[in-house]
Computed example of a mutant assay.
Amino acid sequence: MTLSGGLSRPGERDRPIIKFMEIDWTLCLMLCLIAGAGSLMLFSVAGASWEPWAAKHLIRFGIYFVIMVGLAMVDLRVWFAVSYPIYIVGLLLLVAVELFGDAALGAQRWLVIGPLRFQPSEVMKVGVVLALARYYHGLSADSAKFSWRLIVPVLMIGMPVLLVAHQPDLGTAMLIALTGLAIVILAGLSWKVILAGVTAALVAIPPFVLFVLHDYQRKRVLTFLNPEADQSGSGYHIYQSKIALGSGGLLGKGFGLGSQSQLNFLPEKQTDFIFATLAEEFGFVGCFSVLLLYGIVIFMALRIASISHSHFGRLAAAGVTATFTLYVLINGAMVMGLAPVVGVPMPMLSYGGTVMLTVMVGFGLVQATRVHRYTEVTSGKGSLM
């Protein structure tokens, strides 16, 4: 049917103008509002200056917004065709990081190609979603519930997670693992297997923390459990964040008047702890408003996933939404002292071009799922060939 509800001529829906109008512009508006709020907070923490963060944040968002709209026009069958190649390229780039990666601040996470410096782990956040969505597109409901075929998605998730964790980048490794797990569950995994997996994970956490994590990562976990034990050392981040959160009260201290951020008590105020700055300056009302925007984005993206006629589209859109949701939950919990500090930013609010690009490419896929929701992807095969 056309936008007016009548029957369309064959091929009419493929016209670029029709595709452009099918984009969910309300979702686009919500993303713009979140990015705008991020720019205001970055302007504030820089001492009422557009430099060095706020202006770049807005410019990047503008460029990535255009990229998102362009990707929304790409047919789902094209996304399907490039799913495995994107995953394989991402995996090879992670191996290249192990061999030739650029190290900084004790971590080897970046590749440098000419003037370009980037983190291949960001490619895998989208690559894992696409590859798993394509794999499960070709499986029957019984095979997705539980069978020997589960080995394939376990390997598809496990390989990039281990490579990213070795860099080390525990936060990104957690995001990839949890996103992959979400897709496997949404694909129809048996609840008995899920409960058994959760039980095994809970049993494995103590030895994992004690014997697998790096010393600084283990210290973060112990600090999370008792941040007051070393308020001026390892617990400084969480302690200052809690002060900022609590001092904001109901309405906050006012725009640009947050003492923790303006006086540089709050570390990483432009990235990991931007939400604490928001809480200090705009209080509970400001935090609730921004979280409401996130909630609306998540709800709308899940609704788009639910109306897709193809299993691939449903899983791909849901996987992107899961990644976005995990960003919000992990950063929010981290800032409030409910989770260890793992370096996960608040999407669209925090400063950082690579993460923003990943998020906007993901929403390009979500929008493509909406624009091409009637497209039947029929050539799915549950193999890596």
Rank of each mutant, 00 (worst) to 15 (best):
I23L: 14
F118R: 11
R373V: 00
L195F: 12
L42M: 12
G246Y: 04
I67C: 10
N331P: 04
A229W: 10
P206C: 12
G286P: 01
L291Q: 00
H237K: 10
G258Y: 07
T172W: 04
L251A: 12
M356L: 15
A279Q: 06
L31N: 08
L31W: 11
I176Y: 06
A301H: 01
L111R: 11
T223Q: 05
G62D: 04
A131R: 05
L186V: 09
W25C: 08
L139R: 15
L31V: 10
V164A: 06
A317W: 01
G362W: 08
S241C: 10
M1S: 11
L365W: 02
M68R: 03
F211R: 08
T199N: 00
V297G: 02
A276G: 02
L181V: 15
L293Y: 10
L257H: 13
D169N: 14
F61T: 03
A316H: 05
T172I: 06
T179E: 10
P16Q: 08
M159S: 15
A187K: 03
H311D: 02
G286S: 01
V366A: 06
V74D: 06
F265V: 09
R117E: 09
M360K: 05
A339Q: 10
V335L: 13
M159K: 01
L251D: 00
G343P: 05
S310M: 06
L163N: 04
S247C: 01
K19Y: 00
L302F: 15
L384A: 14
V161W: 11
H57K: 10
V341T: 15
S44M: 07
V342F: 03
L189E: 01
A133I: 07
W110R: 09
S232G: 15
S44G: 09
L189V: 15
S44I: 08
V128H: 02
M41S: 12
Y84N: 14
D142G: 02
G283Y: 02
T321Y: 11
G380F: 07
K19D: 00
M21I: 11
L162D: 00
Y327Q: 06
F324T: 04
L29E: 00
G36C: 05
M1R: 08
A339P: 07
I23Q: 10
E98V: 13
P52K: 11
M346N: 07
Y236E: 04
R314S: 11
S147E: 05
V152K: 09
G256L: 02
I23M: 13
W53Y: 15
I307N: 05
I304W: 03
L210Q: 15
L245R: 00
F43R: 02
W79Y: 15
L293H: 11
H311F: 04
G286R: 01
M334K: 12
S190E: 13
L357P: 09
V344H: 09
I63M: 14
V78G: 00
M385L: 14
V184I: 14
G382S: 13
G246C: 04
R109D: 08
L94R: 08
M300V: 00
Y327T: 01
L116T: 07
I23V: 14
S143N: 10
F118N: 11
V95R: 03
P207C: 07
P206E: 13
I67F: 12
Y216L: 06
V297Y: 03
P120M: 09
M300Y: 05
I274D: 04
A133V: 06
F146S: 07
V320P: 03
V45L: 03
I304Q: 02
L202W: 06
V290H: 04
V221C: 05
L155K: 06
H214N: 09
S4A: 12
A279I: 02
V89T: 12
